[in-house]
Amino acid sequence: MVQRKIRVLIGKPGLDGHDRGAKTVASVLRDSGMEVIYTGLHQTPEMIAEAAAQEDVDVVGLSILSGAHMQLFPRVREELAARGMGDVLLVGGGIIPADDMAQLESQGFTKLFGPGTNTEEIAKWIREEMERRGDSGGDL
């Protein structure tokens, strides 16, 4: 019997040490039935992408409060692509201006959630997006 579970990696790139948001989102996604790998603070984009590749996740969630999102998101995307994971869903949260959000989302497979987002909404969005995609565990 094939039973796919949605696997999510939550990473905190960069230098800021505020991980409460990341932990909250991790808990919400777990409570909605997903398997969430939490990797802790101060991750480099390389570390996040490598962990995502080893864990074979469907979604990578980044929490960025340092203001470096315009550098970090594209770097993580590049590092994922370099590992054959260019189509992984990239989800982000933090203090990100609307213009930046639009620009990052235009790069594809990306969704950003600002402060005050209902956390259930994040889980719902991921689930719907995964359903739309169908079998994500296909041949490499």
């Binding site: 777990r30 909605s32 398997e35 790998i37 990797t39 570390m47 962990a51 080893q54 864990e55």
Partner: peptide
């Protein structure tokens, strides 16, 4: 819920960038 929070990598994260180590939760 069937969900899980897998946090063992936190204590092993320095190993992630080492090509001689592979960690799976």
């Amino acid at each position: 819920t069937g969900g899980a929070l897998l946090g063992d990598r936190i204590r092993m994260e320095d190993r992630t960038s080492d090509p001689g180590v592979f960690i799976r939760s």
